[in-house]
Write a protein that binds this DNA or RNA. Sequence first.
DNA 1: TCAAAAGTGTTCTGGATACACCCATGA
DNA 2: TCATGGGTGTATCCAGAACACTTTTGA
Lengths: 227, 227
Amino acid sequence: MAKSPKVAVDVVIFTIDAGALQALLVEVKRGPFAGRWAFPGGLVPVGEPLEETATRELLAQTGLRDVYLEQLRSFGDPARDPHTHVLSVAYFALVPHKGEAPCAKAQRAAAHSAGGKYARVQWVPVSTLPRLAYDHNAIAAYALQRLRAKLAYTNIVYSLLPQAFTLGELQEIYEIILGRGLDRRNFRKKVGALGLLRALRRQRRGPHRPAQLYAFTRRTPMNIGML
Amino acid sequence: MAKSPKVAVDVVIFTIDAGALQALLVEVKRGPFAGRWAFPGGLVPVGEPLEETATRELLAQTGLRDVYLEQLRSFGDPARDPHTHVLSVAYFALVPHKGEAPCAKAQRAAAHSAGGKYARVQWVPVSTLPRLAYDHNAIAAYALQRLRAKLAYTNIVYSLLPQAFTLGELQEIYEIILGRGLDRRNFRKKVGALGLLRALRRQRRGPHRPAQLYAFTRRTPMNIGML
DNA sequence: TCAAAAGTGTTCTGGATACACCCATGA
DNA sequence: TCATGGGTGTATCCAGAACACTTTTGA
């Protein structure tokens, strides 16, 4: 019986920060890609479910659990890792946006990984990703495409937002990820009609007019017709 | 470094025949699932791209090449194969419908595999799939869902049809796969507006009024707004 | 008072749906 | 002549897109 390739899981972890869609990168320590950036990942040991490997990796790099995690697809080009044939099952994850503290997540992640297996860890806007190790640029493109598509027909945005948020923040996330502006009135009309939100009794106060705060009624993935 | 699971590819091969959506099943020869039906597949040897394994399997079972082939996703539950941890990368394929000779394909496939690695090979309507080996029922469900979705926003039907076909046949395929009837006038209007077809100078003659034959202008996957 | 984001309704348009009759053929 | 599938056009409805002004606040 012929030997099989090794199996790895790689996770594209997205968040919104500083007005941009960001992905978490780690610096590869050794091998042909030493010094290059890549998405966090690791080999799948015999007996472990794929999601578990992905969840482990996610917890290790961000300290977060119970985030949105979805399999993208597998990348199996034998040459994607020059060292040996490694199949990568790609996942993407969405972690919540802390509007109040830009870069807090990046710092937390970095701190977490101080003694970790990667040299450095960093959030990078997906619009300015460097040339990555392995075929991770292809994985990034695929992940972004999937994210954009799912934004249009599911409610997964909830996983990018904190419990309470304003309609402006919700719309901003759509605009950032889709890369285009949306009409505010139509957006609110649509969101209202979908009935996914409930208005809280609080407002967000800022330098301008206070904004009504909302929360999702159900924080669980569903298909809707958002766009 | 921990050992990885083995890697297999399994292919759900769809066709339309006898007014139903059919999938190709093979009988498992040995192991805990001996005697049960499953989708054709096999282990991925080191150094071989996933698509190549899938293409090989497809050629071996149907004798067809250059058919539509698309990766679904990977199924990695360690218990899906009781014998040992085998990751399955699932694909689905669409092979063309020979309207004139029902079951011709099934017979051809069976003949092809006479000396093959499977005990028996058979086309089975997806609506009456038996309990399959491994987690192949889950793969079937996923494949069907994907097929239905892609029918709505791509032109991949072309891969289920011969070069020349009537609008009635085209519509029938949509109805069979989607499991619901479509208005004939609206369907033709829509198809015409998309401009994917060109009318041939021939007609199909049958027991009733002859029908105009059409061909796809481009037999290559594209995103369109079909439904 | 000014700058900046919050909040709100109406009109228009295009695509989707619903719907019924005549035609050409082989049996 | 009949049964069967092929072929066609119009009215309606609804969702998406376009669009401008007032309000509230902190600075």
